[in-house]
């Protein structure tokens, strides 16, 4: 029972709170209290001191550090930009040099190749001519030897045939007829 006695008026007073606040008068509205106005005067003095110290001393210090940093960053960026430009220029130079060197090397190679080709062609032409000559020489020698051999063949064949006929028949054959028969036989074999 005792707790309830305590809680019920407490709950009732809670409901009355807004009304009570207005009725009882807030300490904030108690302008008869000299402290209510004096706190404002002191507050103005304190705020003025805060403003002066902050605006003349504390804030510029922060601003200076921030500006210094911004300038530092800007400088670094600028330097980086300059280095990049320089590097780009160097790169372009190197690329151009490489291209030039490559072109020079290519032309040198081409010239050397052409010279070598020319020399090789000359050499091979000379060699060919020599070989051709040797070949034709050899061919004429062969042809001569062949005709000599062929003419010798007729003599040998005639003599052999005459001897064979003389042994078989005992009489010397008519050279005219023998020569004609040998010629026909050679012609038939394609050697005459």
């Amino acid at each position: 029972m005792k707790p309830l006695r305590r809680v019920v008026p407490f709950a009732a007073s809670l409901l009355m709170l807004p009304v009570a606040a207005m009725a009882a008068g807030m300490p904030q509205m108690d302008f008869k209290n000299p402290l209510t106005t004096s706190q404002v005067v002191w507050g103005a003095i304190i705020f003025a001191v805060l403003y002066i110290v902050a605006s003349k001393f504390a804030l510029p210090k922060v601003g200076a550090v921030l500006e210094e940093r911004a300038a530092h960053i800007a400088n670094d960026l600028e330097a980086a930009q300059a280095s990049k430009l320089k590097a780009d220029a160097g790169m372009a130079e190197a690329t151009a040099a490489i291209a030039k060197a490559r072109a020079e090397a290519q032309s040198a190679i081409n010239a050397a190749l052409d010279a070598a080709k020319g020399a090789a062609a000359e050499q091979s032409a000379a060699l060919n001519a020599r070989l051709e000559k040797q070949l034709s020489d050899a061919e004429t020698q062969i042809a001569r030897a062949r005709t000599q051999a062929m003419s010798a063949l007729r003599e040998v064949a005639t003599e052999t045939a005459a001897t064979v006929v003389a042994r078989l028949t005992g009489q010397v054959p008519d050279p005219q007829r023998l020569s004609g028969a040998i010629g026909a036989a050679l012609a038939a074999r394609g050697v005459g």
């Binding site: 402290l35 706190q39 002191w42 507050g43 001191v49 805060l50 001393f57 504390a58 210090k61 922060v62």
Partner: peptide, 21 residues
């Protein structure tokens, strides 16, 4: 007539300045 409100104002201002300085 310096009140406890003014004490808190001094503390608040002091903390602001301390943060900066």
């Amino acid at each position: 007539n310096f009140t406890q409100a003014n004490t808190m104002m001094v503390v608040a201002s002091g903390l602001v300045l301390a943060l900066l300085v």
